[in-house]
Write a protein that binds this DNA or RNA. Structure first.
Lengths: 132, 132
DNA sequence: TTTATTACTAGTAATAGTTATCAATTGGAG
DNA sequence: CTCCAATTGATAACTATTACTAGTAATAAA
């Protein structure tokens, strides 16, 4: 564990976070790559991956999406519910009215719980139309 | 869409489902492969993947685990909450007391919602101990 | 029963997404 | 400015998963 390690705010890192926060489409790594390349044309895909991972570990972003599927990133750090399309994998935010549920200590099986994700799965309007 | 396609219950498929249902450890595809190989030594990994995928699509199993991470499979078809370790990726079941939350129609943004996953994320006891 | 058709399998090759490596560059503390 | 660890771009390597293929087994049709 290198908790000592310092981080710097490179131009690349700043732009990646800015662009990620601009959208609520939960882009994949290479969608972020495309967005950032419009500003820093010579940025490399590896840098994008590296920074998205770092931002997640710092709690400035989070990963969403299907287990096993391609990663998608969310620039909103506070927890909120998601709605995922079973067919096209698109993820959209949902304003879940109640607070996200908490887990009673007694059921946590010794885990130190720090977060909770709530995801609804279904078919999005676009895919539903295409199935006609 | 080949909704017409018939399915057969091959020995391989039957054993894969049986073995998956025996455990509550949410194994990865190649953990299932190891389990099944003790019974059908010459089974191929591709067959395991193919059948796990099919079982999920039939609602006889489900995928769990971290977005973007390695797939893990759960032989219990009814929805239930999970507890995932941030460090070792292990997933355990949790007896979440209340019914899983539902999403009001008005917030579904046109999605046809068919499922909901609730996952608590944290550090498992084993990893917590190792960090000392 | 034979024949035709379809689903399935093992084995293997191919793919896609992601991570690791490394020499060169850069941010930021002093 | 000077120095050095953090970071980068480029590319290679890796790993989980999927696709392909020829052969086999199950079911249906004749």
């Amino acid at each position: 564990m290198d908790t000592q390690r310092q981080h710097r705010l490179s131009r690349q890192r700043k732009v990646i976070l800015q662009e990620l926060c601009k959208v609520d489409t939960h882009p994949t790594a290479d969608e972020v790559y495309d967005m950032v390349r419009r500003i820093i044309p010579r940025i490399s895909l590896g840098t994008v991956y590296r920074n998205l991972e770092l931002l997640c570990s710092q709690g400035l972003a989070q990963k969403v999406g299907q287990a096993g599927g391609q990663k998608r990133f969310d620039g909103a750090p506070q927890p909120h519910a998601h709605l995922r399309c079973r067919l096209c994998s698109r993820v959209v935010d949902v304003d879940y009215p109640e607070a996200l549920p908490a887990l009673p200590e007694a059921l946590a099986k010794g885990f130190e719980v720090s977060a909770c994700t709530l995801e609804f799965v279904g078919i999005c309007p676009r895919c539903k139309a295409q199935m006609s």
